[in-house]
Amino acid sequence: MSQNLHRPRLLPLALSVTLTGALLAGCSTSPTGRSQLMVVTPDQAITESKSAYVSTVGELGTEGKLVTDSKTLNRIKTITGRLVTEAVAKFPKTANWSWSVAVIDDAETLNAWCMAGGRMAIYTGIIDKLDLTDDEIAQIMGHEISHALANHTAEQMSRAVLINAGLQATAAATENNQYALSGTALAAKYALQLPNSRTAETEADRIGIELAARAGYNPAAAVSLWEKMKKAAGGSTPEFMSTHPSPSNRSKTLGKLGTEMLALNPTLKKAAVYPVTMVTSTSQLQ
């Protein structure tokens, strides 16, 4: 299984930033208070993500892989809509995001993602092969939404830009185009293929499990989800785990967080469903 299967491509912006721009990098602060080095601003990441989403999901739509089954769509829409209600309550500026989900008909791919700006996808493989409960789907989508809320897309793109800028400068100084070509490939790999950092994963775990609990989904499902994921991995690496490193103590940490988060909504009262767009055709991507 390709580790880059249907991964959105965000290269154009990364390749357009020069070393001068990289040296003018700014700083941002994540929702957990961590300092983030930013070459690519969150707004730029949202703009690039929109283009990448249109391209990636458009291609999948042309291949006939966008799910239109009303039962599946309503299930994902309800779960995700409740999570987004809590995301907007915690981060009011995201009310202007283009919250949307494409359910991808791909029985072999165990994956889900959320891009900057709230554009999401989840694959039927991860739902069906892991026999996910609603609570477990909420943990996946809450985690992915949290990557967007914490500006992790912009952060990853920024790292890729800095690496590429350095290699472009080397290419110019040595008049060796090999460096420039390597920079292009390396920027792509760092931005899209390598795992999220442990720090980013920890942030997304904490924000995501809180969103799910506030939305009315049992935080204990975070533990059962990762147990299912580890079992499914076997001798291979599912797409989701290729970009979401799982330290051995992750389940234990999530278990402790779950107890804390359950106190925020002890009765697991369900949140209102935010109007999330379900993408079922390429015409919705304009």
Rank of each mutant, 00 (worst) to 15 (best):
R119D: 02
L5D: 12
S281C: 13
S55D: 02
A187D: 03
I163V: 12
S224Q: 07
G216H: 05
I46S: 04
V54I: 03
A112M: 02
K269F: 10
A138C: 00
N164V: 08
S236K: 14
D135I: 00
L186I: 08
L66Y: 12
L132N: 05
A221I: 01
L167F: 05
E203L: 15
E86P: 06
E260N: 12
T20P: 06
T56E: 08
P12Q: 10
G26S: 00
A89K: 08
D106A: 11
S246T: 14
L254T: 10
M141S: 06
T80A: 04
S246A: 11
K90A: 06
A271V: 15
N111I: 10
N151Y: 05
L15F: 05
P266C: 15
A263D: 15
A165W: 07
S49A: 10
T199S: 12
T133F: 02
E227S: 06
Q284H: 14
T124A: 02
T133V: 06
G234F: 07
S197N: 09
S281A: 14
T72E: 04
T56G: 03
T259A: 15
N4M: 00
A187P: 10
L19P: 03
L10M: 05
E210M: 02
D128E: 02
D106M: 01
V40S: 01
Q286L: 14
L186R: 09
A87F: 10
E210R: 10
D135H: 11
L257W: 11
W99T: 08
G81T: 08
I207R: 06
C27I: 05
I46V: 07
A169Y: 03
S100Y: 09
A191Q: 14
M141D: 10
R82W: 02
Y190D: 00
S283N: 15
A173R: 11
S28R: 02
M229S: 03
T68G: 02
